[in-house]
């Protein structure tokens, strides 16, 4: 039965990846990647139960936090690049 749930999660991940490829804006892609992150946490947890290895939950726990930090990081990098292109601020990479 766990296999049914894993397959459904895999289908949802495929839909998220399709949206990440289609875009059309950067924000759609980050949103899709964010959703895939949540789904990855769930599939890791379900696979942990399926193979009866509770250590998988530790990986899921860490992945929740990494997925959150990566979303914020991508947004920060992109916002920073935008203000640089507009000549707003000078980043540490400028001469």
């Amino acid at each position: 039965m766990y296999i049914v749930v894993s397959i459904v999660i895999l289908i949802a991940i495929a839909a998220g990846l399709l949206r990440a490829f289609l875009g059309p804006t950067l924000y759609d892609r980050v949103l899709a990647v964010n959703m895939v992150g949540t789904l990855t946490v769930l599939i890791v947890a379900v696979l942990g139960f399926m193979t009866e290895r509770p250590e998988f939950l530790d990986i899921a726990l860490v992945y929740v936090l990494i997925s959150f930090v990566s979303t914020i990081a991508v947004l920060r990098v992109y916002a920073h690049r935008n203000t640089e292109a507009a000549g707003g601020t000078t980043g540490p990479g400028d001469k």
């Binding site: 749930v5 289908i11 839909a15 949206r19 959703m35 789904l39």
Partner: peptide, 13 residues
């Protein structure tokens, strides 16, 4: 829960 995940996926597309 799996059904709601599928709904979210359909919605995103």
């Amino acid at each position: 829960g799996a059904c709601f995940l599928l709904v979210g996926a359909i919605g995103v597309l």
